[in-house]
Simulated assay, not measured.
Amino acid sequence: MAPQLPVNDVMLILERDGAVCLAERQGTGYADGKLNLPSGKLDPDEDVFDAVIREAFEEVGIVVPRDALRLVHVMHFRNPEGEPRVGWFFVAQHWDGEPRNMEPKKCAGLSWHAPDHLPDNTVPYNALGIAHWLKDEPFSVHGWERSA
């Protein structure tokens, strides 16, 4: 059997006044009612920087210059459904515009939360990435535990 290639996800950590921006998922059929970072998957022929810049504009209506992005964590993750993913977590050091909900059919709204006290309904994949960012840990592996 051929190995399953991982999906590459990009997540954007927008921090302001000691809080991070989270979006409440709705109407997507996956993790609805949970909070996640502005995020998405790479499109064909797109690098991770272009993807996170595109997602920032599509989801929260801000323009993030490429040189304002800092890669803070990479996670090799297997979700509860067993699908492998690689998450690229970026911090935007500055951006143009005010974050706002650009996808009201997929997002119930934006809210700001202390990164070290995230709500219980934060998507675990995102919460783990934020926790590793806070600890200045550049790489992690989750969901691949094996029995001894």
Rank of each mutant, 00 (worst) to 15 (best):
D116G: 08
W95C: 01
W144D: 09
K105I: 14
T28E: 09
P3Q: 11
H113E: 10
E145Y: 05
D136H: 12
A127N: 02
S140I: 11
R70N: 00
G87I: 06
F90K: 09
D45Q: 10
K105G: 15
Y125F: 01
L42C: 13
A23E: 13
R70G: 00
F139V: 14
L14W: 04
E103I: 12
E103L: 15
E81C: 00
A31H: 12
P138G: 12
I130M: 00
V123G: 03
G143V: 05
C21E: 07
A108G: 13
R25W: 06
S39D: 01
G61H: 02
L12P: 07
G61W: 00
L128K: 03
N121Q: 08
P119H: 08
V48A: 12
P84F: 00
L134A: 05
V10T: 15
T122N: 00
G97T: 13
P3R: 09
L12Q: 10
H73V: 01
A68M: 01
A68C: 04
E55F: 01
G109M: 13
V60Q: 01
E137T: 06
P44V: 12
N36L: 11
A19M: 11
E98G: 09
E24Y: 06
D67R: 10
D32R: 15
E137R: 09
A114K: 14
R78S: 03
L35M: 06
E103A: 14
H132N: 05
W133V: 04
P138K: 15
M75K: 06
N36K: 14
L128R: 02
P138Q: 13
H117K: 14
A131W: 00
H94L: 06
G61K: 08
P119V: 11
K105A: 15
G40E: 08
V64K: 04
A2H: 14
G27I: 12
G40H: 10
E103K: 14
D50H: 10
P104N: 14
S111M: 09
H76C: 03
P6F: 02
M11C: 15
K105D: 15
R25M: 10
H73K: 07
P124K: 01
C107N: 15
T122V: 03
L12D: 12
Q4W: 00
G129K: 05
L110E: 08
G82T: 08
G18E: 10
M75R: 04
P44N: 11
I13V: 14
A127W: 01
H73G: 02
E46N: 08
W95T: 06
L12A: 09
